[in-house]
């Protein structure tokens, strides 16, 4: 099993004819993702490498029954693209775009919340269920199927964890990048809830960072819900000074909140194992799974 995406996912890519969109669409198809449509306003009726292109997401959904969308459009148009796919009835919209204005994201998130659809991102690397479906930009070759659920705010650090676990023989049910922006779709808690309900996920690795209090809220949920799968948490930014944005728009300690220590304390209190390095993540995950350490 897996969460959110699997081999039944029928994917529409918004911005498929753009530079990033076309490159990553081919990567996703090489992975085995069932990309059924692309959307590019004004280019409807064409096809790109055998994938039909539509003017609107609604047209794409009607013609192909697409149920997951990947957004690769520039920041100025991305919030609109998110709302378009949610309005078209797509169950999950994955937005890769970095640099979307916060006010746009606040509106897009409120809009998606009024539909039955979910949003992942923005400013996220996407989602992978190994051997089944990948939406986004996570490198293809690092993913292996197995019992670990991964959820992270960072891109490359999440790749490191995936690769480290895969190389140690611990594959993944699903790896989810929730994104580095201050206003996001799915957060840690929502993804943990899905991993809780997924029978094949036996341990979860959380990759958090400074800024906001999403990790703290997830820790509260772990405690209050009695979530019984092992959680291994990796938090970056202990050395980050207050008031500075550390690369991600959302990675900032402001008014004393959002420090790495506050997240580590909350997660420790919730029973999570805290990892300082990728090697620690691998070692602690192996120990918690009862698998031989690599």
């Amino acid at each position: 099993m897996s969460i959110l995406v699997d081999r039944g996912s029928r994917v529409v890519i918004q911005g498929m004819t753009g530079r990033e969109g076309s490159f990553h669409t081919e990567q996703m198809r090489a992975f085995g993702t069932n990309v059924v449509a692309g959307v590019s306003p004004g280019k409807g009726g064409n096809d790109q490498n055998g994938v039909p292109v539509f003017d609107t997401v609604a047209d794409a959904v009607e013609a192909t029954d697409a149920n997951v969308a990947g957004v690769f459009v520039p920041p100025a148009f991305a919030a609109d693209a998110i709302m378009e796919s949610a309005a078209a009835g797509v169950a999950l919209t994955v937005c890769i775009t970095e640099g979307i204005p916060v006010h746009d994201m606040v509106r897009a998130r409120a809009f998606v919340d009024r539909t039955s659809g979910k949003l992942l991102g923005a400013n996220c690397p996407g989602i992978v269920t190994p051997r089944q479906c990948k939406i986004g930009i996570i490198p293809n070759h690092i993913n292996e199927p197995g019992p670990v659920g991964i959820v992270g705010r960072s891109g490359t650090l999440t790749y490191e964890v995936i690769q480290g676990l895969s190389q140690a023989g611990m594959g993944q049910t699903t790896s989810v990048g929730i994104g580095g922006d201050p206003v996001l779709g799915l957060g840690f808690t929502e993804v943990l809830q899905m991993f809780a309900a997924d029978g094949d996920t036996r341990a979860v690795v959380m990759i958090g960072e400074i800024g906001g209090s999403d990790e703290e809220r997830a820790a509260q949920w772990i405690e209050s819900s009695g979530f019984d799968k092992p959680v291994i948490a990796f938090i970056s930014g202990r050395t980050a000074p207050p008031g500075k944005r550390m690369g991600h728009a959302g990675a900032i300690i402001s008014g004393g909140t959002g420090t790495a220590q506050s997240k580590i304390d909350a997660l420790t209190a919730a029973g999570a194992a805290i990892a300082d390095t990728i090697e620690d993540v691998v070692r602690l995950t192996a120990a918690r799974l009862g698998a031989p350490a690599a």
């Binding site: 930009i137 992270g152 705010r153 960072s154 891109g155 490359t156 650090l157 999440t158 490191e160 580095g180 990759i207 960072e209 400074i210 990796f234 970056s236 930014g237 202990r238 050395t239 980050a240 500075k244 550390m246 690369g247 991600h248 990675a251 790495a260 300082d276 390095t277």
Partner: peptide, 30 residues
């Protein structure tokens, strides 16, 4: 110097953990 915000932050954290003092955070991107 690192690529990606989380990875670069972790790079600084590791330097500190090994007894050094980071001079900067520089994320060169994807």
């Amino acid at each position: 110097i690192g690529n990606g915000a989380g990875l670069t932050m972790n790079t600084l954290d590791l330097v500190k953990q090994h007894g050094g003092e980071p001079a900067d955070f520089l994320d060169i991107g994807g």
